[in-house]
């Protein structure tokens, strides 16, 4: 078996705001790990055999790695802009491949059927052409000029608007979405999906947001995003196979799925195959 190239990546393992000395026991790619606040106040993560694992706190979460990260955690410059409200949405566990969870996040065509009357509604089902690229310098997947009609795009949105999106995949189990920001048209709201791979077919999903919205109570923001994600959960738990098929013959993409096509190609190129199925079974 080849070495799991995802082992050196950073993964979310808990909410920074809930970090305490008692800690929590969780797992990363099949290995049990413990996450707690150390005596120095920093996050302390230990692996199955008691060894210390790399740890950092960023974007509301504790991040760790089973291997030896060659790069710092990816940057989200917008997250540091003053005036944004940072929203810890909390964990939701899903019995699916971590890669399927990310791919679903990159998809807009399901909005009218799964997020009916919130992120989409019939008859507005058409996905217009958009741009997708693998940016070689950053080594990230990007989709831009994605537009979709939405009945209630955000908690702060009144009535239907055509929303513009940009999607970014900076790590195999993380995606950052930039979305039209109704109160501040010149800025983008940032909505992320950070996925902790517990096993190849089981993950803890930690959505997180950095929004310009001074009006909406924090709890409403949390509930809005939890609602959206839990609507997706019943889809994710019923896809067959559980692992993401990288064999092109296994599933049928259309023009609307170009982000997913690029994501799968990028995963394959890097050998990011934890949670993937290479050959049809």
């Amino acid at each position: 078996m080849t070495r799991n190239t995802m082992i050196d990546g950073w993964y979310p393992v808990g909410l920074a705001s809930q970090l305490d000395a008692h800690g929590r026991v969780t797992a990363l790619m099949g290995e049990p790990i413990a996450v707690r606040r150390g005596e120095d106040g920093n996050a302390k993560v230990t692996g199955g055999n008691g060894r210390d694992l790399p740890a950092c706190i960023r974007y509301g979460h504790v991040w760790s790695s089973l291997g030896d990260p060659q790069k710092p955690l990816f940057a989200i410059p917008e997250a540091d802009q003053p005036g944004r409200r940072l929203v810890d949405v909390g964990v939701v566990r899903v019995r699916c491949s971590p890669l399927r969870a990310v791919e679903n996040f990159l998809d807009i065509a399901h909005f009218p059927f799964v997020h009916t009357d919130i992120l989409g509604a019939e008859p507005h089902t058409e996905v217009q052409n958009y741009k997708v690229e693998i940016r070689e310098d950053e080594d990230e997947v990007w989709a831009t000029q994605v537009k979709f009609y939405q009945p209630q795009a955000a908690k702060s949105a009144e009535g239907g608007i055509t929303t513009e999106y940009m999607y970014r995949v900076p790590a195999p189990t993380c995606s950052v979405l930039y979305k039209t920001c109704p109160p501040r048209p010149a800025e983008w709201d940032v909505i992320t999906l950070f996925v902790q791979p517990l096993a190849e077919d089981l993950c803890d999903v930690w959505p997180w947001m950095a929004l310009f919205d001074d009006e909406t109570p924090m709890t409403d923001l949390i509930h809005f995003q939890q609602t959206i994600f839990v609507q997706d959960r019943s889809i994710l738990e019923n896809q067959i196979p559980r692992l993401l098929p990288l064999d092109p013959g296994m599933e049928i993409p259309t023009r609307a799925d170009l982000t997913s096509v690029a994501y799968r190609r990028w995963l394959k190129r890097h050998g990011y195959t934890y949670g993937a199925q290479l050959v049809a079974q």
Partner: peptide
Amino acid sequence: IEMPGIHRLHELTPAPVLEVGEA
């Protein structure tokens, strides 16, 4: 009304008829 995890019965609404180009 639905809640997350309980999908709407889309069969209760008719299939949409949409002019091409409208979105």
